[in-house]
Computed example of a mutant assay.
Amino acid sequence: MLPTVEQVAKMIDHSLLRPDLTVGEVRQGCELAASRGTKSVCVRPSDVALAVAALHGTGVLVGTVVGFPHGNTLTAIKVAETKALVEAGADEIDMVLDIGRLRSGDAAYVRDDIAAVVQAAGGRCVKVIQENAYLTNDQKVLGCRLVEEAGAQFVKTSTGFAPGGATLADIRLMRATVSPAIEVKAAGGVRTLDTLLELVEAGATRFGATATAAILDDLAARHRGERTSVVAAADGAY
């Protein structure tokens, strides 16, 4: 059975992270998110205050990014950035872990880096981006375990700016690695409803997407088709 349009909308973080977006385009993106009832928008740090104002009273959360997109800023900078963004009104933080340190096997550094951001977020949801395109499966598993140890709420596949994005294999691996207390977010390449539904089946519960309208419109159309079929079948029975 297909999920409802409302259910899928509440799985989507509408992504507004392209570096070339104008202020007007960010406002338009916030309007789209509000009209479609997405879970959140995910905006660039400099756009947080704008998004907070644009989405006031809509129920759509404002998310933003820290250490984006490479993850190699100092922990102190990530902490300062997180605190400033929380003060500006951010509800959720998507941080990039230190990819090079993870690939080097420096587990303590990666865990402490994440934990510092979690603490700075003051109880707000923290999603940790591993950037799986650069990692082996063993490194992905290690990253997931460190995310959970550090107290974050989500593991996330990708920034959307690396050579590859979310894959079924990665979602299955991440879901199998973390406990039920940790959720999995897919980002990068989630452009169609079929892709999203496949990733839901694999264990993802949140999605970074720019093709939000197309995904939700496709789902609405399929529901209309299902209702038409049911009516036709019922008419035939009589």
Results as ranks from 00 to 15, higher is better:
209 A>Q: 03
212 T>S: 07
98 D>G: 01
34 A>G: 06
15 S>C: 15
22 T>V: 08
232 A>C: 14
65 V>E: 01
4 T>K: 08
104 S>L: 06
108 A>H: 10
203 G>M: 04
199 L>E: 03
80 A>S: 12
11 M>Q: 08
230 V>Y: 15
170 D>A: 06
211 A>M: 06
166 A>R: 02
139 Q>A: 10
161 F>L: 04
66 V>P: 01
179 S>A: 11
37 G>A: 12
184 V>M: 00
122 G>K: 04
152 A>E: 05
82 T>Y: 11
103 R>P: 00
145 R>N: 09
53 A>I: 10
73 T>R: 13
125 C>M: 11
42 C>D: 11
157 T>M: 07
149 E>N: 06
122 G>L: 02
164 G>Y: 05
201 E>W: 09
120 A>T: 03
185 K>L: 03
62 V>T: 10
37 G>L: 01
130 Q>G: 00
221 A>N: 15
181 A>W: 02
223 H>F: 13
128 V>K: 09
111 R>E: 06
68 F>L: 05
202 A>D: 00
167 T>F: 03
192 T>S: 15
80 A>N: 10
119 Q>M: 09
186 A>L: 09
63 G>C: 14
225 G>W: 14
205 T>P: 00
97 L>S: 00
88 A>E: 09
148 E>Y: 07
169 A>R: 05
45 P>H: 02
116 A>R: 04
43 V>R: 07
182 I>W: 02
59 G>Q: 04
208 G>N: 08
142 L>W: 08
212 T>P: 07
158 S>P: 06
4 T>L: 11
111 R>H: 10
65 V>H: 00
4 T>F: 12
57 G>D: 09
3 P>K: 07
130 Q>P: 02
58 T>M: 06
168 L>D: 03
224 R>C: 14
27 R>D: 15
107 A>I: 02
184 V>A: 01
93 I>S: 05
60 V>L: 00
228 T>L: 15
113 D>S: 03
39 K>D: 12
165 G>I: 02
141 V>A: 01
